[in-house]
Structures are given as C-alpha cells and as structure tokens.
Simulated scan of single mutants.
Amino acid sequence: MCLIAFAWRVHPEFPLVVVANRDEYLDRPAVPAHWWPDATDLLAGRDLEAGGTWMGLSRNGRFAALTNYRDPSRRHSAAPSRGRLVRQALETGEDTLAALHAIAADSVRYAGFNLLVSDGLTLGVHESTTGAVSLLEPGIHGLSNHLLDTPWPKLAHARRHLTALLQRLPADDDVLALLRDETAAADEDLPRTGVSLEWERLLSPVFIRAPGYGTRCSSLILVGRDGRTRFREWTWEDDGGLRSEVLHGFTITR
C-alpha cells in the first residue's frame, strides 16, 4: 500500500476501520483480495510477481499492511520482496509486539518499509528506517511513504475525511470519494523525498495517475466489535476506470 488511513478503537462498533490505496507499477501483475488456496486462513490481494501481499486479514482476527518508504538514495536492488512480511505477520501465532520484533530483527535485509500488525487485541507498527517498534494508542492514524502520521497533504486529507466517514458507518458510500480524490498538493506543500519535482506532484494526490504507475486498487476494512468483518476492494484499470469490485464478509474465530 502507499496510503493507509485507519481508526483504531475510535468507533464504538468498529474497533478497526481501514481505508487504503495500493500504488504500484501498472505492469506488475496482481489479483484482488481472495481467500488464498495455499493459505486458507488468509484473505488478501496477491502480487503475482513475488507471491506476497500488501494488506490482509486472517480468520482469527489478525491484520497486517505495509507501505514502502520513498527514498531513492536507499535503493536496495537485491532485497527480497517486502510482501512476504505481511504474510509472515498474518500467519504467526505471536502477539503484536513479538511479531513486530521478530520482523524488525531482520528488516535491514529489505528496502525501507513501514509495517502495521494487529493480533486483534493490539495494533502496532515497525518503521524499518528508524528501527522503531511501538504499539498504537486509540486514534486516527495514517501511513504513506514516510513514517507514521507524517503530515503529507494527502495523508492529512485522508485522516480528516476518515474522521467524517466514521460518523456514517456502517454506510460506506463516501469511501470512494475519499480514495478517488485526484487533487494534487500545492508545490509549497510537497514533501521532498529525493524524486524530481514533477514526480512529487504526480505522487501527491490520494489517487495517483502517472506514466506507468498509479493507484491499482482501493480498499475498505471494517472489523466489528462482534467479530463480523467486511473487506471491500475496488480494482482499477490503467486509465483509472473500474476493473472489478469484490466484497468479502466473515466472522472472526479465535
């Protein structure tokens, strides 16, 4: 993922609410969220190039999602795929902190990333570029291609609109208005991450359309206090048109 906004233990009926966009090269093959035939307790999209995923859930209530850290000076061409870390976090039996520390112990081998992990009881983050591992307090948080809650314009926008969206749940008709916003940030508000100014502009909207690169799918996850869970995902064509939509519902079993 390249943009995740989430509400942790804020809504009285939905302890975890996630809205997210996955940005990726347009020619990298992937399939929408589904129950994996080779890991039947795992619900996630799948990267068909490396076999991992960017965000997923498990039947026992685990959640994990990963964003890349944007810094061209940190390129690591021989690094393994970061998508395997999400699967590792979903399939382990360890609690949130133990799972994050296990991944942090080996994260230097990977290109920069941020990983969110929840065991259903707690939610935490590992930032590989700082080495930090921490549990999150209740609140509305966000990740893009920098550290947790870095106030990039699109992340501030997403957090603000998620706050408004919470008041209307379980109705989710306004989710796409948030995730499809193509408004670019003003030049003076752009981050400076080491790419050209032209690319900073192209990457600044919530929903990205750029040469060979863009938002590939948009997702909504609602985890209810009663364990009932909803995963809705929209997949986009290269030109931004809707390719497909999937909706999965299940009840967490511990």
Rank of each mutant, 00 (worst) to 15 (best):
M1T: 15
L3D: 14
I4C: 09
A7P: 01
W8K: 03
R9Y: 08
E13R: 14
L16E: 12
A20P: 05
D23T: 11
D23R: 02
E24L: 07
E24A: 03
E24R: 05
E24G: 02
Y25L: 13
R28C: 01
R28I: 04
A30L: 02
A33C: 08
A33P: 01
W35A: 02
W35Q: 03
P37N: 01
T40Y: 02
L43D: 03
A44V: 09
A44P: 00
R46C: 08
L48G: 06
E49A: 15
G52M: 06
M55C: 13
G56Q: 11
L57Y: 12
S58F: 12
S58H: 11
R59L: 08
A65L: 10
T67Y: 04
T67N: 12
Y69I: 12
R70I: 08
A79T: 03
R82S: 06
V86D: 11
R87D: 13
A89K: 05
L90E: 09
T92A: 05
G93C: 06
G93M: 12
D95L: 01
D95N: 15
A99I: 04
A99P: 02
L100E: 07
A102G: 13
A102M: 02
A102Y: 00
I103M: 13
A104G: 05
D119K: 05
G120C: 10
G120I: 07
L121T: 15
L121C: 12
L121Q: 15
G124Y: 07
G124F: 01
H126G: 08
E127Y: 10
T129F: 01
A132Y: 04
S134V: 02
S134R: 15
L135D: 10
L136K: 00
E137R: 10
I140W: 01
I140R: 06
G142W: 00
S144Y: 10
S144R: 03
L148Q: 00
D149Q: 04
P153K: 04
K154D: 04
L155F: 03
H157K: 14
H157R: 15
R159A: 04
T163R: 08
T163A: 14
L169S: 10
L169G: 06
P170C: 05
D172N: 10
D172E: 13
D172L: 00
D173F: 09
D173C: 09
A177W: 10
L178R: 05
L178H: 08
A184P: 07
E188K: 04
D189Q: 14
L190R: 06
L190V: 07
E198S: 10
E200A: 13
R201W: 00
L202R: 11
V206T: 13
I208V: 15
I208A: 03
I208R: 07
P211L: 01
P211E: 11
G212I: 04
G212W: 04
Y213R: 12
G214Y: 00
T215C: 04
T215E: 01
C217L: 10
C217P: 07
L220E: 08
G224C: 12
G227R: 04
R230S: 14
R230H: 12
W234V: 14
W236N: 00
G241D: 07
L242P: 02
H248N: 00
G249P: 02
G249E: 15
